[in-house]
């Protein structure tokens, strides 16, 4: 995974609460077999008019936000479906940072698997950013994960909180499967221990009557 340490870019404000992942990547794009190319599907139903003509009113299509790489959103961003396609689309579109008062749990988690930094800020700070983004012709931020700070084009600087272990994952671009596999011996020990919580009945000995009608 691509490490994340510092990022500067243009911010685009998406002024909607409870944006769900069905909105971010609609169902018809969930049949892909790879992680690539989802950027063009991001916010599909809002972004395009019939015939895939860009909707001139949707914020991502406004010329002043072209090339934006930081997404500012409202509370409970990324709620709903677990589809990681939503993060792949955010990433592929070119976003490296998403800032919101709160996130859906699974979306938040998925961000860290893909090198996208989700930042939670208090509602008042978010309001302030929306205001600044609307007033300034081009509102740019520099996000520094190392020092956990955001500096805007007007020189204003604020800090943000993030779990230290999550921060490490992004800073180092860790392959967390690799990290877990360092504990392989412990996993094997755990498996060999008769652990009471899950009686493992050998499924192979059970007849589930599969009929292969092919």
């Amino acid at each position: 995974m691509k490490p994340f340490s510092k990022h500067s870019g243009l911010l685009v404000p998406l002024d909607r609460v409870n944006v769900d992942t069905d909105q971010m990547v609609p169902k018809q794009f969930l049949k892909a077999l790879t992680r690539a190319g989802f950027g063009k599907n991001l916010f599909y139903d809002w972004r395009y008019l019939p015939g895939e003509i860009p909707n001139p009113e949707f914020v991502l299509n406004l010329p002043r936000y072209r090339g934006a790489s930081i997404l500012l959103a409202r509370h409970n961003f990324g709620c709903g479906s677990s589809r990681e396609h939503a993060v792949w689309a955010v990433m592929d579109y070119g976003f490296r940072v998403v800032i919101a008062p709160s996130f859906g749990d699974i979306f938040y988690n998925n961000c860290f698997k893909n090198g996208v930094l989700p930042i939670r800020l208090p509602e008042s700070e978010i309001d302030e950013m929306f205001r600044a983004a609307k007033e300034a012709g081009s509102y740019r931020l520099t996000v520094d994960l190392e020092s956990q700070s955001i500096t805007d084009s007007q020189g204003r600087s604020i800090g943000f909180e993030i779990d230290p272990s999550r921060r490490e994952v992004l800073l180092q671009g860790l392959d967390d499967i690799g990290v877990t596999l360092r504990h392989e011996e412990r996993i094997t020990q755990f498996e060999n221990r008769a652990h009471p919580s899950a009686p493992l009945y050998d499924p192979a000995s059970v007849d589930v009557r599969i009929t292969s009608g092919q």
Binding site: R35, N109, I177
Partner: peptide, 16 residues
């Protein structure tokens, strides 16, 4: 879980 975590569980039978 997300797809990256699906991969994680397939590989390790564990989750962080």
């Amino acid at each position: 879980i997300g797809t990256s975590e699906v991969e994680h569980v397939l590989a390790t039978q564990c989750l962080v």
